[in-house]
Simulated scan of single mutants.
Amino acid sequence: MKKDNCFYLGKIVKKYSFKGEVLAKLDTDQPDIYENLDAIFLDFKNNLVPFFIEKSQLHKSDLLRIKFEDVDTEADADAIMKTNLFLPLEMLPKLEGNKFYFHEVIGFTITDKNFGNVGTLKAINDSTAQALFEIDRNGTEILIPMNDEFILEVNRTNKTIIVETPEGLIDLYLNN
């Protein structure tokens, strides 16, 4: 399984018992949908290795207590500590309306209600306080905040996102 075909689910953060159980911090708003997994991929030096799950249950809301097959001792648990967890993209719940996963909208055309065609969405920068659409307009980078009030429509069929940005925002990038 390649990382490109997977999504980041979380990270093993600590040991739970002397029998190899671990606690994983999940990066999701819906941890309960991942409570009964059969297997999960662990990232070892950029190689995804499948691990089969004997049992798992939610622990303190956003932690998942996991007992993997063949991880039976504290030493076994130490060997997988701080490992990132991944699942295949097909396992992501489908989103509808104006909700989307970042990976699914890359390549979409961004159109502003007042400005017109802005360009192609190249990436989403979520390392800032507010996530930003990074748009390519004929070699010029335009950044638009991913504000729910700005996003009018996400059209998966036509691969477009229609936004309404404050007047002059897009022009700031074009009038240099």
Rank of each mutant, 00 (worst) to 15 (best):
T83G: 12
D62T: 13
E104M: 01
E96F: 12
D76W: 04
K60R: 13
G97W: 10
K67Y: 05
L58M: 08
N98H: 10
L121E: 04
S56W: 02
E104R: 01
E74A: 03
R65V: 00
Q57M: 10
N117T: 15
D112Y: 08
L64Y: 09
A77H: 03
D78N: 13
D70Y: 08
K99H: 10
L121I: 11
F68I: 03
H59Q: 14
L63T: 01
T73M: 03
L64Q: 07
I106F: 09
D76H: 12
N114E: 07
Y101M: 10
F100N: 08
F102H: 06
R65H: 13
D72M: 03
I80D: 02
K113Q: 14
S61H: 11
L87I: 09
L64V: 12
D72G: 12
K82V: 06
G107T: 06
P93A: 04
M91K: 13
F68R: 00
V71A: 03
D76E: 09
L92V: 03
T120A: 04
K60P: 00
V71Q: 00
V105N: 00
L64W: 11
E104D: 15
I80S: 06
L87C: 08
A75I: 14
M81W: 09
F86W: 09
F108R: 01
S61A: 10
L92H: 04
T111V: 15
V118F: 07
I80F: 07
F86G: 02
A77S: 13
K60L: 15
T120C: 00
K60Q: 14
F68M: 03
I106Q: 06
A79M: 13
Y101N: 12
K67E: 15
A77Y: 09
T111L: 07
H59D: 11
E96R: 06
F108P: 06
P88A: 12
T120Q: 08
L58S: 05
S61N: 13
L95I: 12
K82L: 14
L121V: 09
L89D: 08
D112I: 13
D78H: 03
E69Q: 13
T109G: 00
Y101D: 11
I110W: 01
K67N: 10
D112T: 13
L95M: 14
V118D: 03
D70S: 08
K60N: 14
I66T: 07
F100V: 09
L87D: 11
N114L: 06
D76T: 02
T109V: 08
T120K: 12
G107E: 04
D70M: 09
Q57N: 15
D62R: 08
P88G: 05
Q57K: 13
N84G: 04
